[in-house]
């Protein structure tokens, strides 16, 4: 009785309820998108974008702009810089991304350290959904709704783009537009997720649900739904649990996601580690042969 009572305490607070609902929404949107991000191999890009928006957020906080506007601006700038440097040098893509995002991130941290009255460093790095302002809340909801609508209409085109861009061009689809669309959706959700889990952990929201879902199904449509469910569920529960962990919302959400991933990795019916071992020992006749990966 006492324990149940303790567990229900967070729901007595409006700010907690609000944080839980908003986190869930962000989790669902990021989950949908994570299906594309993991399959396209854009995990590192997600990480890069989430760090590159930091100076934008810091500046927007100083100038009184909406955070999303500043974040979006530097996100686009960083993407452009990465593309430019990649074309102009012979460096590998991952190195170029690393250089650009650390530079942007460092610039953001410098701005924050130079302006003590501006945005709080902790808010940007770890998020602060428990104290989200109404204006930011509105931004998050708008971003979420727009992203969901766009994905609902165009997910098949984006899937083809991720799977085989050459074929998309052969069919006369506007590949450049699709590429840009996916980038824009990603930057927008990064901005939203920043509020919930902070710059360092955004990439988890954009990768972990998709990775777990990929181990659970062989159909893209289903994978998208599974990822959205996992993302939303973990965000809901994690935000709720953070009440008991000193408000470390981002840490709770992401730890939960990683735990779910761990469970899926071990026990996924077809692509899990235990299933693979079972097959390797030949107890189950069906299924695909174990492949050796390098």
């Amino acid at each position: 009785m006492g324990m149940w009572h303790d567990l229900l305490v967070p729901l007595q607070y409006d700010y907690m309820v609000r944080a839980v609902v908003v986190s869930g929404l962000i989790g669902v949107v990021c989950g949908f998108l994570s299906a594309f991000v993991t399959l396209k191999g854009w995990s590192l890009l997600g990480d890069a974008l989430s760090h590159a928006v930091v100076p934008g957020v810091a500046l927007a906080g100083l100038l009184g702009w909406p955070l999303a506007a500043g974040a979006f601006l530097t996100g686009v700038l960083a993407t452009g810089a990465m593309a430019l440097i990649k074309v102009k040098s012979r460096l590998r893509e991952d190195a170029v991304m690393g250089i650009v995002f650390t530079t942007f991130f460092a610039a953001g941290l410098l701005i924050i350290s130079l302006t003590p009255g501006g945005v709080d460093r902790k808010t940007i790095i770890f998020g602060n959904i428990l104290a989200i302002a109404d204006r930011e809340l509105l931004q998050v909801v708008v971003i979420a709704v727009v992203t969901l609508v766009v994905l609902g209409c165009k997910w098949r085109d984006l899937m083809l783009f991720c799977f085989d861009a050459t074929q998309a061009r052969t069919l006369g689809l506007p590949v450049v537009v699709l590429h840009g669309l996916l980038l824009v959706l990603m930057s927008a959700t990064v901005v939203a997720a920043l509020q919930a889990v902070g710059a360092v952990l955004v990439v988890a929201m954009l990768v972990t649900p998709g990775a777990a879902a990929h181990l659970l199904t062989d159909r893209f449509g289903r994978m998208m739904w599974v990822a959205a469910g996992l993302g939303g569920g973990c965000a809901l529960v994690g935000a709720y649990a953070s009440y008991f962990f000193d408000g470390a919302t981002g840490g709770c959400i992401v730890t939960l996601q990683a735990l779910v991933f761990g469970v899926v990795f071990l026990w996924a019916p077809r692509h899990g580690w235990l299933a693979e071992r079972r097959r390797a020992r030949g107890r189950s006749g069906s299924g695909k042969a174990q492949e050796v990966r390098l």
């Binding site: 085989d164 069919l171 062989d218 994978m223």
Partner: peptide
């Protein structure tokens, strides 16, 4: 193309891939 450079772990079935030919 001569060599299809796609991710062979992509969660699509043979049917899905051929259906993509109709998207245009």
């Amino acid at each position: 193309p001569q060599a299809e450079e796609v991710d062979w772990d992509f969660p699509v079935s043979v049917w899905d891939v051929v259906l993509m030919g109709r998207y245009g």
